[in-house]
């Protein structure tokens, strides 16, 4: 692997790691607040797995000389993060600790369902990655992602089919999520380098797969297709972020930052 290819690999790994880290963090904030107890068991299990996926991507970055994996997860400032903007958004108004959380379950179901669809598309492509360790990890992650996708699909279908308030809120959530959905499949400013290095297929191919999959879902559920994928607030892969990210990082790193030298 030459220098250019390694740079592309590192960049892609940060995107994958930061995406899984942020979506897991937002998931962990729901602990004890979800609609029912079985969901608490399920969502926290999914969140734990996904945090494990983030950890293995940070681990590969460590093996490539990027520094300690814990440090990469906890101590990088918001400006260096490569996650999609959609994943840093708060779950809704309020906060689990400081004031009454009034989190939005419809938004959470839509965000997670679309995230798992795009993740599966990327992971499938990564199983053929030229970088062997990444391809191997993708095969493993795929076995777990299947269950996550199944879970969110169940919620998505049931709430849409419930009609009334549930369907209305789901439609509003889809509209909101769609505005930044393109960020999930963005490969960032170095997209050409990443694809040229044979690490993953091109954005166009990934988006094409997403569109054909989501069109089928929307057809079945009689939902309006929202057209081309958008990134209205910008591309997180290029370091564009919102205040929500800084807030999330401060909270998730609070204990780590008390004493970064303590072993975990």
């Amino acid at each position: 692997m030459n220098e250019e290819e390694k740079k592309a690999l590192v960049e892609l790994l940060y995107q994958l790691a930061d995406d899984d880290l942020l979506v897991s963090y937002r998931g962990s904030e729901w602990l004890g607040l979800v609609p029912h107890i079985e969901e608490d068991v399920a969502y926290s299990s999914i969140t734990q797995n996904t945090m494990g996926h983030a950890a293995i991507f940070y681990q590969i970055l460590e093996e490539l000389g990027e520094g300690n994996a814990d440090h990469l997860a906890h101590a990088r400032p918001a400006t260096e993060r490569k996650n999609a903007i959609l994943l840093e958004d708060v779950n809704g108004p309020g906060h689990w600790l400081y004031n009454e959380p009034r989190y939005d379950w419809a938004f959470t179901v839509v965000r997670n369902y679309f995230y798992e669809i795009t993740k599966k598309i990327k992971i499938d492509s990564l199983t053929k990655s030229k970088y062997e360790p990444l391809a191997q990890v993708a095969v493993k992650i795929n076995t777990e992602t299947l269950y996550h996708l199944m879970h969110w699909r169940t919620w998505f279908y049931q709430l849409i089919n419930a009609e009334g308030e549930a369907r209305n809120r789901m439609e509003q959530a889809i509209e909101k999520v769609w505005k930044d959905l393109g960020g999930l499949l963005s490969l960032g400013p170095n997209r050409e380098g990443i694809v040229a290095a044979g690490l993953i297929e091109s954005e166009d191919v990934l988006k094409e797969r997403f569109n054909s999959e989501i069109k089928e879902v929307f057809n079945t559920l009689n939902l309006d297709f929202h057209g081309e994928l958008k990134m209205e607030r910008g591309d997180g892969r290029a370091g564009v972020h919102t205040d929500d990210l800084a807030e999330a990082l401060a909270s998730l790193s609070e204990v780590y930052n008390l004493n970064p030298t303590v072993p975990w």
Binding site: V41, A42, E144, M150
Partner: peptide
């Protein structure tokens, strides 16, 4: 199947 997810990642209820 009450819950595909259980008390640990590897188990269902």
């Amino acid at each position: 199947v009450e819950n595909i997810f259980g008390p640990s990642a590897c188990r269902s209820i």
